[in-house]
Computed example of a mutant assay.
Amino acid sequence: MTPTHPKLTGKLLIETSLGNFLGDKRIRLLEAIDQQGSISQAAKAVPMSYKAAWDAVDDMNNVAPQPLVHRSAGGLRGGGTELTAFGRRLIAFYRALEQESQLALEKLTHNLTQSGVADAADFQQVLRKMTMKTSARNQFAGPVTALKEGVVDVEVSIRLDPQLVLTAIVTRESAESLGLALGKDVLAFVKASSIVLVVEDDDKEVRISARNRFRGIVARIHAGPVNSEVTLDLPGGRHVLTAVITDDSVRRLGLAVGQPVVAVFKAPSVFLVAID
């Protein structure tokens, strides 16, 4: 019997201006949304939780140059979710690229086996260790539009949308290491726990030192035993921002879906990744 050799297989992860998180599971979610017309049904088909599906859609829409998913709320039919034309083109591109990448892996497996350089399983283990993930809930992408250099730090402005500019502060060493320059595309990450929500009072002027202040509308509140996750729709209709605050804060602020709030976070709490 001819001995069988390990076969290199992999999940395609696209690293473009869309970010480094567009992989097989999220593509399958987009395909299911296109088929089902419902994010709850699509989540069951993948499968993944309803909340995880919404989070994935928010993340993808946040960094894509065009929306991938369009959501309609309410109405006689109760609203729905549909894939955009751009979303369908992205799926087709991903599947074509996936097929080509698998052919390349099969060729590599054959060459390794013939040459006896190393076992394919050795490379699979290395690749798994090299996979990078981040715990930051909020991920955005955009070009650098301004750099303000100080003695120690650099203030970086990133345009997410015509109406949205995010500000980060990094050390000069980090700015040089990332190769930051005007027009360079970067990914910006903000932990949900770093975001403070403010409900404005018409009778009082709120003054806050934090550099980033985004006005939004409460889209969802996911309550937990201690903390709640509050997701905001930002101006422009494409980006969302998620904050984690205590359940007591939700009650004290009187937060509800459809309510306008201001999300505030400091520039040093934003960390950047350069897109080559």
Rank of each mutant, 00 (worst) to 15 (best):
D233P: 00
L197K: 05
N227W: 00
V198F: 03
R252S: 15
G237N: 02
L182H: 12
L178S: 08
S177M: 05
N227M: 08
L232C: 10
G236W: 03
L253D: 05
H222A: 12
L241A: 09
T242V: 13
V226Y: 02
E200F: 01
R252Y: 05
R172E: 09
L187T: 01
G179S: 04
R220I: 02
A192N: 02
V206Y: 11
D247A: 13
R172S: 14
R213M: 15
L187D: 05
G224D: 06
E200R: 03
E205Y: 05
L234E: 10
A175N: 04
A223P: 01
L234G: 14
E176N: 11
I195H: 09
S174R: 04
K191E: 12
A210D: 02
H239Y: 00
L253H: 12
R238H: 10
L241Y: 07
R238T: 14
L241H: 05
V250A: 06
G236P: 01
R251M: 14
L232D: 11
D248Q: 13
V218A: 04
V250W: 03
V226A: 09
A192E: 07
S228L: 09
R215H: 13
H239R: 09
D185G: 00
T242A: 13
A181I: 00
F214G: 04
S194N: 12
A243N: 09
G224M: 06
D247Q: 14
E176L: 08
D201Q: 06
A192Y: 02
D247T: 12
H239K: 10
I195A: 06
V250M: 11
V218T: 07
G183T: 09
E229A: 15
V230Q: 11
T246M: 08
L182S: 10
E229V: 10
V250G: 10
I221W: 00
G216S: 05
R220H: 12
V240A: 13
A181K: 10
R211T: 13
L178K: 06
T242N: 04
L182G: 01
V196D: 05
E200Y: 00
T246V: 06
D233K: 08
S194I: 00
